[in-house]
């Protein structure tokens, strides 16, 4: 008997279901998968933008709002300059459609490298409740762009802001049908508190996360 059969056999023996109970359990599993019942959620106010901005700031992201996408490159250029960061970045295909060159930012669309200083991405959506970005991996959306560079800038349309994680799953099922290789929920810059339980930003991932909310 191989390990799989042995382990599953032991589980079955421990659960000790008879044929009727087994059939009921199988129906229960299917019913639960179909129902996708939502558990308790923290209350959020109607103003999702305000909630998102507060929660993201609490986790050390910075957030700014712009009225239209056209404004994004100039605002990001100003933000980079204010933080003493060079105006060059690796980016996803989506945000690359904006006119970054006009704002003086050299944006390259290619696989990210370890020496990239900034990564400019979009986001599948953002979650107000925790101030979180939901990023999906893909051919045009490499996961490393939000991970290897010391600075991560995410451009998120206001319309892609949802209240809770369950809303994000619903959106993903509706629009993509299945999960991509990697769903990464990002809530602020990488951090560690391993040394003396003292929070330090910039452990292995970005030192700073800047979210530009459009619209």
């Amino acid at each position: 008997m191989n390990a799989r059969e042995l382990i599953l056999g032991r589980v079955c023996a421990a659960l000790n279901r008879d044929a009727a109970a087994d059939a009921a359990a199988r129906r229960g599993v299917d019913a639960h998968l179909d129902a996708r019942a939502v558990g308790p959620q923290p209350a959020v106010t109607d103003d999702l933008v305000e909630t998102f901005m507060q929660c993201a700031a609490a986790l050390s992201s910075t957030v700014e709002r712009v009225a239209s996408a056209d404004e994004v490159p100039a605002r990001v250029a100003a933000w980079l300059q204010a933080h003493g960061l060079p105006a060059q970045a690796v980016g996803w295909t989506g945000p690359a459609a904006l006119d970054w060159a006009a704002a003086g930012i050299a944006l390259e669309v290619r696989p990210p490298r370890a020496d990239d200083l900034a990564g400019i991405t979009g986001a599948f959506c953002a979650i107000a409740d925790t101030g979180t970005l939901m990023l999906l991996s893909g051919a045009d959306t490499p996961a490393a762009a939000s991970l290897l560079p010391e600075t991560h800038v995410a451009v998120v349309p206001r319309a892609r802001l949802v209240a809770h994680m369950e809303d994000a799953w619903r959106l993903l099922r509706a629009e993509a049908g299945r999960l991509p290789r990697a769903v990464n929920f990002v809530s602020g810059p990488s951090r560690t508190a391993d040394i003396e339980q003292t929070v330090t930003l910039g452990a292995h991932g970005p030192y700073r996360v800047h979210v530009v909310l459009v619209g």
């Binding site: 923290p42 929660c55 609490a58 986790l59 409740d129 925790t130 979180t132 299945r178 999960l179 991509p180 290789r181 990697a182 769903v183 990464n184 929920f185 990002v186 809530s187 602020g188 810059p189 990488s190 951090r191 991932g205």
Partner: peptide, 11 residues
């Protein structure tokens, strides 16, 4: 409220 990263890996 959430860890900085939650990574859901599929395939």
């Amino acid at each position: 409220t959430i860890t900085n990263y939650v990574s859901v890996n599929t395939g």
